[in-house]
Write a protein that binds this DNA or RNA. Structure first.
Length: 533
RNA sequence: GUGGCCGUAGCUCAAAUGGUUAGAGCGCUCCGCUGUGAACGGAGGGGUUGGGGGUUCAAUUCCCCCCGGUCGCCCCA
């Protein structure tokens, strides 16, 4: 295909690059989610991105918008109809069936993380390619599974530093829901004139969705509408009550929302959504819609639709971009795994040679060290060191080689010391450990005083425009071995974002001994014990 | 699929009612300082003003189409 115009090449609509400076968020979220789901006994599964389109047509629902309008579907070279996954669940359940996982101890808990594709028009928090984390518990219809999933999610968001609200409802099963829908339609038809035009069409097409309509007139017209909870059959009612009891028991705050429904056919019983609690956000426009971070529910009909034995499934999916955007809005910073502590500057060929080796020595001692061996001038190297935000720069030149010494420059004070070259690795280790124990606020912080570390929510409210800085050290995001998994999101270094205030609190993670600095949580914003052990 | 607003340098933004060579700050490269950064002074590189077409003596500016962004609707994480 020839390109007629000189239209510059660019990413497809609704597709985004995840740039180096954003990677720390992705690392952070992936690692935290994975850590948490492992704690709950989930196993990771990566279903293919491309599947036989029929699993979505059957599973997600031929007439759902996701399939009718948003599915990336095309014929492959063999003539088969294939589709980019518009959600994880059908692929995961397909895999469960295909690999005979019903022969494993039930339930089977499966976790996935990766890109999802929907040909939707982009808008706030919505892209054509976006990432989800997804958890399914397959093979148990126990309400305890539903509540455990909700408990896990609630803790997970706390783990991200996000305050959330959970809305929950039960939409019954194939036995009781039709009865309810009949009653609902009866009610709606009485006053259908009061509904918006879309909702008038919905009476036939999708009456449940009318309860969810944002139109004020519709909301008013349905105040007296019958509620599904009153129509649940005994087993559904019992199930729902048990779920609520369970999450009560672990002190999860939720609200019953009888208007919470699902467009997808295979949902049964429990449905829930997790919203960002925006009370602390004062820049939120009045009447703005709540931001959903995750949603889930029970899908007991799905496995059978996909050709398996009837198998109960309960699952949840969370939107990664939405979590990141919420963290950004709340000015929650995350540790940068690429942050280095030491820079090596060299002068002259002989010194460079020695520094190449020193670099390896330090790296092997788990010191986060950087260099600019491609540059020669000291000035240029110090500029790089400055941009990297390291604590110390080691300077080695001809003179130091002759003396068997090396210069240690403290980058914030500018103070330099000459030490014996042989001791340099030990000395740096010691200094980094010391600075990890003693918190020193250096001059630089005064310049950037905008980032007071606010502990209480009241303060956060007052300083809404300022930096609600999730202090890396006190809240100890690194209290877990953050980078431990073999994954594409691992081990990625991100450049220091120049727009972000640097954290000059020098008690930063020094990972000589990963995971050895558990505890030390004294901040009210701290994570619950549940999430730190 | 559909509607509103928007698109000027890597980033943030200028350029009155159309009018000469489209500017600034930040960042980038280099120099003053062949061994000292963040916080000095100087210089330089960077733009076919998102793309195409139209109106006009003249278009970044006005009109149309397309592409993209953003915020909605439908739907949804």
């Amino acid at each position: 295909m020839s390109r007629k115009t000189k239209q510059p090449i660019q990413a497809l609509k609704g597709f985004k690059d995840i740039l180096p400076e954003d990677q720390k968020f992705w690392d952070f979220i992936y690692n935290r989610v994975y850590q948490t789901v492992l704690d709950y006994g989930f196993k990771k599964i990566d279903p293919p991105i491309l599947e036989d389109a029929h699993i979505y047509m059957k599973g997600t629902g031929q007439h759902s918008d996701i399939v009718e309008k948003e599915l990336y579907v095309f014929e492959d070279k063999g003539g088969g109809l294939v589709a980019l996954r518009p959600e994880f669940t059908p692929g995961v359940v397909r895999s469960y069936i295909e690999h005979g996982m019903q022969n494993q101890p039930q339930p089977v808990k499966l976790f996935s993380f990766g890109p999802i594709f929907r040909h939707d028009n982009p808008q706030a928090g919505r892209f054509r390619q976006f990432y989800q984390f997804n958890c399914e518990i397959i093979g148990s219809d126990s309400p305890d599974m539903d509540s455990q999933l909700i408990t896990m999610l609630s803790g997970l968001f706390k783990f991200f530093g996000l305050d959330t609200m959970i809305e929950i409802n039960s939409i019954g099963c194939h036995e009781c829901r039709p009865v309810y829908i009949k009653q609902l339609i009866k009610f709606l038809k009485k006053d259908s004139a009061k509904l918006c035009t879309t909702c008038q069409e919905r009476i036939v097409k999708n009456p449940l969705r009318i309860l969810d309509c944002k139109n004020k007139a519709c909301a008013a017209a349905t105040v007296q509408a019958p509620q599904i909870v009153d129509y649940l059959c005994e087993p559904c009612k019992k199930h729902f009550v048990k779920v609520l009891e369970n999450i009560d028991d672990v002190n999860i705050i939720y609200s019953l929302n009888s208007r919470l429904v699902r467009g997808l056919d295979y949902y049964t019983r429990t449905v829930f959504e997790v919203f960002l609690n925006e009370e602390i956000l004062t820049d939120r426009p009045e009447g703005a819609e709540k931001i959903a971070l995750a949603g889930g529910g029970r899908l007991d009909g799905l496995a059978e639709i996909l050709g398996g034995r009837p198998t109960p499934v309960v699952g949840v999916a969370g939107g990664v971009e939405r979590v990141i955007s919420a963290m950004r809005r709340l000015k929650i910073d995350v540790p940068d795994p690429g942050q280095a502590d030491v820079f090596i500057a060299q002068l002259g060929e002989e010194a460079k040679k020695k520094c190449l080796k020193l670099f390896e020595d330090m790296r092997h001692c788990n010191i986060k060290v950087r260099e600019a061996f491609a540059k020669n001038g000291l000035k240029a190297q110090l500029e790089v060191a400055d941009k990297l935000g390291v604590k110390y720069t080691l300077i080695l030149g001809q003179k130091e080689i002759m003396d068997g010494t090396i210069i240690v420059r403290d980058m914030s004070s500018g103070i330099q010391e000459i030490i014996v070259y042989e001791n340099v690795v030990e000395e740096i280790k010691k200094r980094l450990l010391d600075s990890n124990c003693v918190k020193i606020y250096l001059d630089e912080t005064q310049k950037k005083s905008a980032f007071d570390v606010s502990d209480s929510k009241a303060e956060i409210k007052e300083h809404k425009k300022e930096r609600h800085h999730y202090n890396q050290d006190e809240n100890d995001f690194s209290s877990k071995p953050v980078v431990e998994f073999n994954h594409p999101f691992e081990n990625i270094t991100a450049d220091q974002d120049e727009n972000e205030p640097k954290n000059y609190n020098t008690s930063e993670d020094v990972d000589f001994d990963l995971g050895s600095e558990e505890g030390a949580l004294e901040n009210p914003n701290d994570l619950d014990d549940d999430w730190t052990n």
